[in-house]
Computed example of a mutant assay.
Amino acid sequence: MSLVRSFFKTVRVVLGPVMIGWEWLRRPRGVVRAPAQQQLVDMQCKSLALYQYRTCPFCMKVRQNMRRLSLNIEQRDAQHDAAHRAALVAGGGKAKVPCLKISDANGQSQWLYDSAAINAYLDSRFKTA
């Protein structure tokens, strides 16, 4: 069993930097909004938090969409930060990423899993015509 874990850890260590570099090279240009409009979007983003792993391909897909939409959403590392991982499991019920925590004005939270569902939510809420 430890041989299998060692193999996959080695794969992550080797491929991780390559994947992060590839994500950086493919960064989309963000939408440009008027300063007042961007400030309003930034305020709305304060109620959102993305639980993610840095080298997860599905998390990268969500981060690319966040860049495309110029969204300043807090990113929480659920892989290396035990507190964020515990919050994800306690709130969402499972340690699965990506997960978008959506909080409302009453302090209630909705936990949205799956990159396609997260991107659809972000597009419907923030995409400009």
Rank of each mutant, 00 (worst) to 15 (best):
S6A: 14
F8G: 11
F8I: 09
F8H: 15
K9P: 00
V11D: 15
R12Y: 11
V14Y: 09
G16L: 11
P17K: 09
P17V: 04
P17F: 12
V18S: 12
I20E: 12
G21Y: 12
W22R: 14
W22L: 11
W22E: 10
W22S: 13
E23F: 04
E23L: 01
W24Q: 13
R26S: 07
R26H: 10
R26Y: 08
R27D: 10
R29D: 15
R29T: 14
G30P: 11
G30T: 11
G30D: 13
G30W: 11
V31N: 00
V32G: 03
V32I: 15
R33C: 04
R33W: 02
A34C: 08
Q37W: 00
Q37N: 04
Q37K: 04
Q38S: 06
Q38M: 05
L40Y: 00
V41A: 02
V41W: 01
V41S: 03
D42H: 04
D42C: 02
M43S: 12
Q44P: 01
Q44H: 09
C45T: 04
C45A: 09
C45E: 04
S47H: 11
S47M: 14
L48V: 10
L48C: 08
L48Q: 05
A49Q: 09
L50S: 03
Y53T: 08
Y53G: 14
R54H: 12
T55S: 15
T55I: 15
C56S: 15
C56L: 08
F58V: 07
C59S: 15
M60D: 02
M60S: 08
V62F: 03
V62Y: 01
V62R: 04
R63F: 13
R63Y: 08
N65Y: 12
R67E: 08
R67V: 01
R68S: 05
R68F: 06
L69G: 00
S70V: 02
L71S: 03
L71D: 00
N72W: 02
N72I: 02
I73H: 01
I73W: 02
